[in-house]
Amino acid sequence: MIRSTFLRGLAFGLLWWILAEGRLDGWLLGGVAVAAATWTSLKLQPPGKLPMRLAGLVRFLRFFLWNSLRGGFQVAAMALRGRAALRPGIIELRVMLPPGEARILLVNALGLMPGTLGVDLNDTSLRLHVLDDSLPVVAETRALETSIAGLFGEAP
């Protein structure tokens, strides 16, 4: 409890420092804001129940950033070539991830990954729109699922 209060307070303090652009003249207001934010955060998400793993978070962020970079390059090249570059289609896949946050993150994150866009999600399957169905979109989706599973500590 003391440890997570300290760590969260530190994180909110850093956030305040960034928002105040490094100035220290507003520290009184900042201190109140940091204390309020820390208290709210402890109320809403009590320590010890944090659903994510730090190592998984780092790996997920690296995966996500790299693939959104690839996705941006790919779609920019397609845009410059026009609709002749497209071979769009809808595909349906079985979802491997358990219901809940992991699935919501998956279907949303797909929109920034190369060639894929989440369209619908139900109890068992995921509908995707793909820009080019000859690209390895299924493998990309599975890789994202593995990364998200690691984030929530459900790695196989």
Binding site: S68, R83, G111, L112, L117
Partner: peptide
């Protein structure tokens, strides 16, 4: 496909 272009 427009969503792909704008989002990414």
């Amino acid at each position: 496909s427009r969503l792909h272009a704008l989002a990414k």
